[in-house]
Simulated assay, not measured.
Amino acid sequence: MSAATGSSATAFFAVTAKPNDALDDTAGIQGKIDAAGAAGGGIVKMPAGTFIIDGKLRMASNVRLEGAGPETVLKAGPNFLNNTGPAGGYPIVTTAGANNTTLTNFTADQSGDTLNGNVAGRLSEYAVDVRDSRNSLVKGIHTKNPFTYSIAFVGGSNWCVKDSSTQSETNGKYTELDGIHAMNTAHGDIVGNVVDQRKGTDGDDGIAVHTFGTEDAHDIRIVNNNVRGGRHGAGIDLAGGSGVIYNIDLNGNTVWGSPRGLEDAYYDGTKQMHHIKVVGNNFRDNDIKSVGGAVDFERAVTYVTMTDNLACNSGGYRLPAGTGNTSLRNTQTTLC
């Protein structure tokens, strides 16, 4: 749905900052991103090891920021809270309007377990922050110790997050720790990720599609993800308001161990969601065992297709009567 390919640049810009030395590496990595951007694009390659980030990395258009795998760690340092990103928050890395970017093969550790992230602007930017950008690819990114949303897409269009993971492990420190969050954005793919917001007690929604203000969120595909939502949220949350959520395709996901599987929620308005497909998903071992434990459209919706889903030890399905709504071949069992 996104057609996102990310950066197509081929020139290499090797990061020479030394990992594992406890020194701030922000300038060393940012310098290579800036050089690649000035050259019209490039691959900024980072080796394995832990890089301390006390600043905020900002992508340039046509740049690919690439690690060696999960063992390349961008870790918020002891002075990370002393400055903010361009939107007033605390991202490890933000696209901030850059187009044709790729973030791949590294771990982003926001250090929320050791820092006190309860600061002004905590929810203004996010650990991995794709913002107001087009053609953005996030692949093989792993997040740890968040004090805000882990991987977020805000505004912009044509983005994809795949083969990535999030986790929330803190207890009693934070609220609103969503895993993958798409807000006021369009034409996105959330595919093949592992989201676990319930290793600790602070986690919120596993995957959320959200409108805030009057902007819409639409044409988003959520496919083949393994999701556990935190105790403050749901596995997957369609969070509407004054903007409309529409053209959402949820297919082949496994949602487990969450308070509820899939739900709708409303925050700053009541615009009706429409054209939602919930097909072939597996909801298992979620907390609510009654109607709506697996799927809960609590308010009026239209053109919702809910077919061929399986709910085991997770309650059942709620879909109000409405124009174009269809519910067929959805099964419910008490044991998985």
Rank of each mutant, 00 (worst) to 15 (best):
residue 284 R to K: 15
residue 260 R to G: 14
residue 3 A to W: 02
residue 174 Y to C: 06
residue 147 F to I: 12
residue 274 H to M: 07
residue 34 D to A: 11
residue 198 R to N: 15
residue 303 Y to A: 03
residue 216 D to S: 11
residue 198 R to V: 06
residue 318 R to V: 12
residue 20 N to Y: 06
residue 15 V to F: 14
residue 153 F to H: 08
residue 112 G to D: 06
residue 180 I to T: 01
residue 220 I to V: 08
residue 175 T to I: 11
residue 102 T to D: 04
residue 97 G to S: 00
residue 229 G to E: 08
residue 292 G to W: 04
residue 56 K to R: 08
residue 168 S to M: 09
residue 90 Y to W: 00
residue 156 G to W: 05
residue 22 A to Y: 13
residue 255 V to A: 14
residue 167 Q to D: 12
residue 237 D to Y: 05
residue 52 I to G: 01
residue 178 D to I: 02
residue 76 A to R: 04
residue 92 I to W: 00
residue 139 K to D: 09
residue 266 Y to E: 11
residue 312 C to R: 12
residue 142 H to G: 07
residue 104 T to P: 01
residue 226 N to T: 12
residue 1 M to C: 06
residue 131 R to M: 07
residue 123 L to Y: 05
residue 28 G to W: 03
residue 81 L to C: 00
residue 311 A to Y: 07
residue 254 T to I: 15
residue 29 I to E: 05
residue 1 M to Q: 06
residue 71 E to V: 08
residue 191 V to D: 04
residue 293 G to E: 13
residue 86 P to F: 08
residue 195 V to L: 13
residue 321 A to Y: 09
residue 195 V to M: 12
residue 191 V to Y: 09
residue 82 N to A: 13
residue 18 K to I: 05
residue 255 V to E: 07
residue 254 T to C: 14
residue 283 F to N: 12
residue 236 I to H: 08
residue 162 K to G: 03
residue 305 T to D: 09
residue 213 G to Q: 02
residue 248 I to T: 15
residue 100 N to H: 10
residue 158 N to P: 03
residue 35 A to I: 02
residue 234 A to W: 13
residue 83 N to P: 01
residue 305 T to N: 11
residue 275 H to N: 14
residue 204 D to K: 13
residue 262 L to G: 13
residue 71 E to F: 08
residue 105 N to S: 03
residue 174 Y to A: 02
residue 91 P to L: 06
residue 252 G to R: 14
residue 110 Q to N: 02
residue 186 A to F: 03
residue 293 G to W: 13
residue 6 G to K: 08
residue 328 L to S: 06
residue 96 A to Y: 10
residue 119 V to L: 09
residue 63 V to L: 09
residue 31 G to W: 14
residue 43 I to L: 10
residue 62 N to A: 04
residue 237 D to S: 09
residue 146 P to D: 00
residue 291 V to L: 05
residue 302 T to S: 15
residue 311 A to R: 11
residue 139 K to V: 04
residue 21 D to A: 03
residue 160 C to H: 03
residue 127 A to W: 00
residue 300 A to L: 05
residue 48 A to S: 01
residue 84 T to E: 00
residue 146 P to C: 00
residue 132 D to W: 02
residue 265 A to C: 05
residue 170 T to I: 02
residue 162 K to A: 10
residue 111 S to C: 00
residue 44 V to A: 04
residue 321 A to P: 02
residue 203 G to P: 06
residue 238 L to D: 05
residue 104 T to M: 04
residue 171 N to Y: 02
residue 231 R to G: 11
residue 131 R to Q: 11
residue 173 K to Q: 10
residue 141 I to Y: 11
residue 270 T to G: 08
residue 172 G to L: 13
residue 249 D to L: 04
residue 143 T to Q: 10
residue 31 G to S: 14
residue 16 T to I: 02
residue 259 P to D: 09
residue 205 D to F: 14
residue 192 G to I: 05
residue 191 V to F: 07
residue 255 V to T: 15
residue 66 E to V: 01
residue 110 Q to C: 01
residue 102 T to Q: 06
residue 258 S to G: 08
residue 169 E to G: 09
residue 13 F to H: 15
residue 224 N to M: 13
residue 157 S to D: 03
residue 208 A to K: 12
residue 128 V to I: 09
residue 131 R to A: 10
residue 4 A to R: 12
residue 131 R to H: 07
residue 28 G to H: 11
residue 95 T to V: 01
residue 53 I to G: 01
residue 124 S to P: 03
residue 193 N to G: 06
residue 56 K to T: 00
residue 48 A to C: 00
residue 138 V to N: 07
residue 285 D to L: 14
residue 285 D to K: 15
residue 12 F to V: 07
residue 300 A to N: 02
residue 201 T to Q: 14
